[in-house]
Design a protein around this nucleic acid. Sequence first.
DNA 1: TCACTTGCTATGCTTTCTGTAGCGCATTAA
DNA 2: TTAATGCGCTACAGAAAGCATAGCAAGTGA
Lengths: 92, 92
Amino acid sequence: MALFDLLGRHWAMGVLWTLNEIGPSTFRRLQDECETISPATLNKRLKELQVAGFVHRAEGGYATTELGRDLYERLRPLGEFSKDWARHLSNL
Amino acid sequence: MALFDLLGRHWAMGVLWTLNEIGPSTFRRLQDECETISPATLNKRLKELQVAGFVHRAEGGYATTELGRDLYERLRPLGEFSKDWARHLSNL
DNA sequence: TCACTTGCTATGCTTTCTGTAGCGCATTAA
DNA sequence: TTAATGCGCTACAGAAAGCATAGCAAGTGA
């Protein structure tokens, strides 16, 4: 699955998620929101996500495309799941 | 998101996905199905997925837990998406 | 002109993955 | 009893990816 290859890289899902959550933002803003990401990695991920058609440059910096928002919607179940998962881990 | 950290590693989602698709299977079978994964990495991912509670050892080798199947269900939208995505990329 | 912000790039180091080989153990067949 | 097979890994060595930090070049605003 080529999608897993793209998303299965450090910060790929995190960047897409964050960009959807905070809306269009500059490189530096995104870097701050992602806290521990390095600029080199952020830059790389952003380029990959642009080639993939999930992100593009817009007013206000980087933003998700329609396709990127679509993908985000399908990523959201994972967000919910992660709560269930946290509960599971604490019930050990 | 701790889940993204776990799943955002080379082959993490692929292993989980494959294990759900083919059912309980041996280390070697899994290695074959994943085609290009190296044994060291497969081993590492399997350990991580076990600690996370998504995979356990069972009759027939490795298998997904109920939680792992739950996660798989939430991963499936990505599988569908990847078809839309392929269509999008070919329509450029 | 000068300070400030922006999007990066550069450097050097650590961590992660890969490809290939093969070990130790268990089961099976001769 | 021995040989063959399949099993789950482990052991390297080299390549690639990531990190932290520093800083540059271009644009903007005062």
